[in-house]
Write a protein that binds this DNA or RNA. Structure first.
Lengths: 207, 207
DNA sequence: TGGTGTGAACGGCTTCACAGCT
DNA sequence: AGCTGTGAAGCCGTTCACACCA
């Protein structure tokens, strides 16, 4: 296979394949075809094959994909082959929900620190973590944390993001309804919840 | 302007333009150029002009866009020109956070009913709404609610979605980490939170 | 035979350059 | 002169058909 740029859309789909592969592995399934995977995920078989082929292709012709190999290869590609630590900033309603969200662990992701600006919250325990004051973000450098999760109001998002970057965070998951400007080498992925709901009426047939 | 299919990507961006326009209007700004809008949103000016041109273009050459006209036209396009009611199913941590999320109101979206399967929660009041039993989903038909928000575990998502559709819901915002199959004429938009965080390590330069 | 891997065709979104108004 | 509106070009991702191999 020749080298080709990997579409970002492919990267977005890999975690879905990974999750399903883990699930199948736990059920004792050893081998899966692209058609089987596809039907469960609402994707086409050729989409899956193409996606995987960007990384050399690791199936067996005439058979399918070895589930465990699928898992280890995708983990490797996504750099999820070690536990990745994240810091959450902002423990309001949404922040708290994210902190207790059960879906991160399966990807070897660990929210290892929580910060808030509200002195009344600082020091309290939440989901096994002590809430720290945002002024202590500097300590992240020595704690092996390089992912950030922003669950702060829009007005504060850019400032907090700047602070996180100053402290060595290289990638941020942003829940604030706000565009965030970052220097080269830092990645922001934004989940702007209201945007999704606001889109729905458009699709409802006018009848 | 001739008719052309509107890219879904354009529809995704319209709520962003709308939010900014509302904000500018509140600050008393009457007119904005595509370049001004773009810089605030991390989009290019020609992207904005192209997006708006799909709907006939409603700016003034040499001047820019009238902010209030921008608002009313985008509301119209997105069918947000009347209040749209949504039903939330699942009042766990995430569901509760969504219920109290302040970002929906600016789009004239209203979570008007809340359901849960847990009898211990049913009857309790949350954010001004009484939690109803999921068996009462049938009542949605007569309440003018045609948007659904799923905040239930993955295993339950498809079943609840089926129930919602049976009751006349035409569009669903799904927070469950699960692909949902729906008949033609129904739209599902999924926010699978863990997927976004799982993608971040990939972008962190390996250095 | 059966399912993967992949070049090539296709289609759709983005970028661009400039025509067209004000 | 300035900024919008838009055909055309370019780019990127998806779909396809089939070669390839167990």
């Amino acid at each position: 296979m020749r080298y080709r740029r990997v579409p970002d859309e492919t990267i977005k789909r890999l975690p879905i394949y990974l999750r399903r592969a883990i699930h199948l592995s736990q059920k004792g399934v050893k081998c899966v075809s692209s058609a089987e995977l596809a039907s469960l995920l609402g994707v086409t078989p050729w989409q899956i094959r193409k996606d995987l082929s960007y990384f050399g292709g690791f199936g067996t012709r005439g058979v399918g994909y070895n589930v465990d190999k699928l898992i280890s290869r995708i983990r490797e590609i996504l750099k999820l082959n070690v536990v990745r630590k994240a810091a959450l900033v902002g423990v309001g309603n949404l922040g708290s929900a994210i902190l207790s969200y059960p879906g991160f662990q399966q990807y070897w992701l660990d929210i290892a620190a929580v910060f808030d600006i509200d002195k009344r919250k600082v020091g309290k325990k939440l989901s096994g973590l002590i809430i720290e004051d945002v002024s202590l973000l500097g300590t992240l450098k020595d704690r092996g944390i390089n992912l950030g999760i922003l669950a702060v109001p829009g007005e504060a998002a850019q400032d907090v993001a700047d602070d996180l970057i100053k402290v060595g965070i290289k990638a941020i998951l942003n829940f604030a309804p706000q565009y965030i400007e970052v220097p080269r080498g830092v990645k922001v992925v934004t989940i702007d919840i209201a945007l999704y709901l606001a889109r729905l009426p458009y699709y409802v047939s006018s009848k």
